[in-house]
Protein backbone atom coordinates (compact mmCIF):
# COMPACT_ATOMS: atom_id res chain seq x y z
CA UNK A 1 0.00 0.00 0.00
CA UNK A 2 1.24 3.44 -0.91
CA UNK A 3 0.87 5.92 2.01
CA UNK A 4 0.04 8.90 -0.21
CA UNK A 5 -2.77 7.12 -2.04
CA UNK A 6 -4.11 5.85 1.29
CA UNK A 7 -4.21 9.45 2.46
CA UNK A 8 -5.85 10.80 -0.70
CA UNK A 9 -8.47 8.03 -0.65
CA UNK A 10 -10.11 9.65 2.41
CA UNK A 11 -10.40 12.97 0.60
CA UNK A 12 -11.67 11.79 -2.78
CA UNK A 13 -12.95 8.27 -3.33
CA UNK A 14 -14.02 7.60 0.27
CA UNK A 15 -14.88 11.14 1.32
CA UNK A 16 -16.99 10.59 4.45
CA UNK A 17 -19.70 13.11 3.54
CA UNK A 18 -19.99 13.18 -0.24
CA UNK A 19 -19.10 9.58 -1.10
CA UNK A 20 -20.08 7.51 1.94
CA UNK A 21 -22.76 9.82 3.48
CA UNK A 22 -21.53 9.09 7.01
CA UNK A 23 -21.46 11.58 9.86
CA UNK A 24 -24.20 13.69 8.34
CA UNK A 25 -25.66 15.00 11.62
CA UNK A 26 -22.73 17.27 12.56
CA UNK A 27 -22.11 18.10 8.91
CA UNK A 28 -25.53 19.73 8.66
CA UNK A 29 -26.22 20.92 12.19
CA UNK A 30 -23.16 22.99 13.05
CA UNK A 31 -22.25 24.33 9.61
CA UNK A 32 -24.00 27.68 10.02
CA UNK A 33 -20.60 29.34 9.59
CA UNK A 34 -17.14 28.44 8.33
CA UNK A 35 -15.71 28.96 11.82
CA UNK A 36 -18.05 26.44 13.43
CA UNK A 37 -17.36 23.98 10.60
CA UNK A 38 -13.61 24.19 11.24
CA UNK A 39 -14.08 23.83 15.02
CA UNK A 40 -16.27 20.77 14.57
CA UNK A 41 -13.83 19.19 12.12
CA UNK A 42 -10.94 19.76 14.54
CA UNK A 43 -12.79 18.09 17.41
CA UNK A 44 -13.85 15.17 15.22
CA UNK A 45 -10.34 14.82 13.78
CA UNK A 46 -8.81 14.56 17.24
CA UNK A 47 -11.23 11.82 18.28
CA UNK A 48 -10.90 9.97 14.96
CA UNK A 49 -7.08 9.98 14.98
CA UNK A 50 -6.78 8.92 18.64
CA UNK A 51 -9.43 6.20 18.37
CA UNK A 52 -7.94 4.80 15.15
CA UNK A 53 -4.46 4.63 16.71
CA UNK A 54 -5.67 3.03 19.95
CA UNK A 55 -7.99 0.55 18.23
CA UNK A 56 -5.25 -0.42 15.82
CA UNK A 57 -2.66 -0.94 18.55
CA UNK A 58 -5.10 -3.02 20.62
CA UNK A 59 -6.54 -4.97 17.68
CA UNK A 60 -4.86 -8.25 18.72
CA UNK A 61 -6.05 -7.93 22.33
CA UNK A 62 -9.72 -7.05 21.68
CA UNK A 63 -11.85 -10.22 21.36
CA UNK A 64 -13.96 -10.14 18.19
CA UNK A 65 -17.23 -10.73 20.05
CA UNK A 66 -17.06 -7.61 22.23
CA UNK A 67 -15.23 -5.35 19.79
CA UNK A 68 -18.10 -2.89 19.17
CA UNK A 69 -18.67 -2.02 22.86
CA UNK A 70 -14.88 -1.67 23.23
CA UNK A 71 -14.71 0.73 20.27
CA UNK A 72 -17.56 2.79 21.70
CA UNK A 73 -15.85 3.06 25.08
CA UNK A 74 -12.52 4.06 23.49
CA UNK A 75 -14.28 6.70 21.38
CA UNK A 76 -16.33 7.96 24.34
CA UNK A 77 -13.15 8.46 26.38
CA UNK A 78 -11.61 10.75 23.77
CA UNK A 79 -14.92 12.58 23.29
CA UNK A 80 -15.00 13.32 27.02
CA UNK A 81 -11.44 14.67 26.81
CA UNK A 82 -12.23 16.89 23.82
CA UNK A 83 -15.43 18.10 25.46
CA UNK A 84 -13.65 19.16 28.65
CA UNK A 85 -10.72 20.79 26.79
CA UNK A 86 -13.05 22.82 24.58
CA UNK A 87 -15.16 23.84 27.56
CA UNK A 88 -12.04 25.10 29.35
CA UNK A 89 -10.12 26.80 26.53
CA UNK A 90 -12.69 27.67 23.81
CA UNK A 91 -15.96 28.43 25.65
CA UNK A 92 -17.65 30.38 22.77
CA UNK A 93 -16.94 27.56 20.32
CA UNK A 94 -18.13 24.99 22.86
CA UNK A 95 -21.38 26.92 23.31
CA UNK A 96 -21.91 27.20 19.53
CA UNK A 97 -21.37 23.49 18.89
CA UNK A 98 -23.48 22.57 21.91
CA UNK A 99 -24.71 19.01 22.16
CA UNK A 100 -22.86 17.98 18.99
CA UNK A 101 -19.50 17.66 20.78
CA UNK A 102 -20.72 14.81 23.05
CA UNK A 103 -22.57 13.38 20.06
CA UNK A 104 -19.26 12.68 18.28
CA UNK A 105 -19.53 9.38 20.22
CA UNK A 106 -22.27 8.14 17.91
CA UNK A 107 -20.78 9.56 14.72
CA UNK A 108 -20.99 6.54 12.43
CA UNK A 109 -17.91 7.73 10.52
CA UNK A 110 -15.59 7.16 13.51
CA UNK A 111 -16.92 3.76 14.51
CA UNK A 112 -17.00 2.84 10.82
CA UNK A 113 -13.27 3.57 10.43
CA UNK A 114 -12.48 1.64 13.63
CA UNK A 115 -14.39 -1.38 12.38
CA UNK A 116 -13.49 -1.28 8.71
CA UNK A 117 -9.88 -0.10 8.83
CA UNK A 118 -8.14 0.27 12.20
CA UNK A 119 -9.23 -3.20 13.31
CA UNK A 120 -7.42 -4.79 10.35
CA UNK A 121 -4.36 -2.62 9.71
CA UNK A 122 -1.21 -1.63 11.56
CA UNK A 123 -0.76 1.61 13.51
CA UNK A 124 1.01 3.81 10.89
CA UNK A 125 -1.54 3.01 8.19
CA UNK A 126 -4.44 3.55 10.59
CA UNK A 127 -2.97 6.96 11.43
CA UNK A 128 -2.69 7.84 7.74
CA UNK A 129 -6.23 6.65 7.11
CA UNK A 130 -7.55 8.75 10.00
CA UNK A 131 -5.67 11.82 8.75
CA UNK A 132 -7.09 11.35 5.25
CA UNK A 133 -10.67 10.87 6.44
CA UNK A 134 -10.34 13.85 8.80
CA UNK A 135 -9.06 16.04 5.95
CA UNK A 136 -11.95 14.92 3.75
CA UNK A 137 -14.39 15.72 6.56
CA UNK A 138 -12.79 19.16 7.06
CA UNK A 139 -13.04 19.96 3.33
CA UNK A 140 -16.68 18.85 3.12
CA UNK A 141 -17.73 20.75 6.26
CA UNK A 142 -15.85 23.89 5.21
CA UNK A 143 -17.57 23.83 1.81
CA UNK A 144 -21.03 23.48 3.37
CA UNK A 145 -20.27 26.03 6.09
CA UNK A 146 -18.73 28.52 3.69
CA UNK A 147 -21.63 28.37 1.22
CA UNK A 148 -24.23 28.71 3.97
CA UNK A 149 -22.49 31.60 5.70
CA UNK A 150 -21.89 33.44 2.42
CA UNK A 151 -25.45 33.17 1.15
CA UNK A 152 -27.07 33.48 4.57
CA UNK A 153 -25.24 36.52 5.94
CA UNK A 154 -23.48 37.95 2.89
CA UNK A 155 -19.98 37.57 4.26
CA UNK A 156 -17.55 34.99 5.61
CA UNK A 157 -15.95 36.03 8.90
CA UNK A 158 -13.48 33.50 10.30
CA UNK A 159 -11.62 34.08 13.59
CA UNK A 160 -12.00 37.86 13.23
CA UNK A 161 -10.94 38.14 9.58
CA UNK A 162 -13.50 39.04 6.92
CA UNK A 163 -12.66 36.86 3.95
CA UNK A 164 -15.39 37.62 1.38
CA UNK A 165 -18.34 39.97 1.32
CA UNK A 166 -21.29 39.79 -1.06
CA UNK A 167 -24.42 41.94 -1.29
CA UNK A 168 -27.21 39.69 0.00
CA UNK A 169 -30.57 40.77 1.40
CA UNK A 170 -30.01 40.22 5.16
CA UNK A 171 -33.69 39.49 5.78
CA UNK A 172 -33.43 36.21 3.84
CA UNK A 173 -31.87 33.92 6.42
CA UNK A 174 -33.06 30.63 4.96
CA UNK A 175 -29.52 29.46 4.23
CA UNK A 176 -28.42 29.58 7.86
CA UNK A 177 -31.71 28.01 8.99
CA UNK A 178 -32.09 24.21 8.84
CA UNK A 179 -33.54 24.05 5.27
CA UNK A 180 -30.43 25.76 3.91
CA UNK A 181 -28.29 22.91 5.19
CA UNK A 182 -30.28 20.28 3.31
CA UNK A 183 -30.34 22.42 0.16
CA UNK A 184 -26.58 23.08 0.27
CA UNK A 185 -25.58 19.45 0.79
CA UNK A 186 -28.04 18.34 -1.91
CA UNK A 187 -26.57 20.74 -4.47
CA UNK A 188 -22.94 19.98 -3.52
CA UNK A 189 -23.61 16.24 -3.70
CA UNK A 190 -25.26 16.63 -7.12
CA UNK A 191 -22.21 18.57 -8.37
CA UNK A 192 -19.87 15.86 -7.04
CA UNK A 193 -21.96 13.15 -8.74
CA UNK A 194 -22.00 15.14 -12.00
CA UNK A 195 -18.22 15.48 -11.98
CA UNK A 196 -17.86 11.77 -11.21
CA UNK A 197 -20.09 10.84 -14.15
CA UNK A 198 -18.22 13.10 -16.53
CA UNK A 199 -14.94 11.57 -15.42
CA UNK A 200 -16.34 8.09 -15.96
CA UNK A 201 -17.67 9.06 -19.41
CA UNK A 202 -14.20 10.25 -20.39
CA UNK A 203 -12.88 6.83 -19.37
CA UNK A 204 -11.10 8.04 -16.22
Amino acid sequence: MDPLSEYMRGITRENPIFALALGLCPALAVTTSLENAIGMSAATAFVLICSNVIVSSLRKQIPATVRLPMFIIIIATFVTIVNMVMQAYFPPMHAALGVFIPLIVVNCMIIGRAEAYANRNNVPYSLIDALGIATGFLIALSMIGGVRELFGTGQIVTFGYTLITMPVDPSITTMILPPGAFLTIGILMAIVNYQKERKRARGG
Partner: peptide, 23 residues
Amino acid sequence: VPSSIRGLPMAFFLATMLSLAFV
Protein backbone atom coordinates in the same frame (compact mmCIF):
# COMPACT_ATOMS: atom_id res chain seq x y z
CA VAL B 1 -34.58 13.45 -13.01
CA PRO B 2 -30.98 13.95 -14.20
CA SER B 3 -28.89 10.94 -13.24
CA SER B 4 -26.57 12.97 -10.99
CA ILE B 5 -29.54 14.05 -8.84
CA ARG B 6 -31.00 10.55 -8.52
CA GLY B 7 -30.62 9.00 -5.06
CA LEU B 8 -29.06 11.00 -2.23
CA PRO B 9 -29.22 14.54 -3.70
CA MET B 10 -32.91 14.03 -4.46
CA ALA B 11 -33.48 12.86 -0.89
CA PHE B 12 -31.80 16.02 0.39
CA PHE B 13 -33.97 18.23 -1.85
CA LEU B 14 -37.10 16.54 -0.46
CA ALA B 15 -35.71 17.08 3.05
CA THR B 16 -35.22 20.77 2.24
CA MET B 17 -38.92 21.15 1.50
CA LEU B 18 -39.95 19.25 4.62
CA SER B 19 -37.64 21.33 6.75
CA LEU B 20 -38.82 24.58 5.15
CA ALA B 21 -42.40 23.65 5.96
CA PHE B 22 -41.55 22.86 9.58
CA VAL B 23 -39.43 25.99 10.17
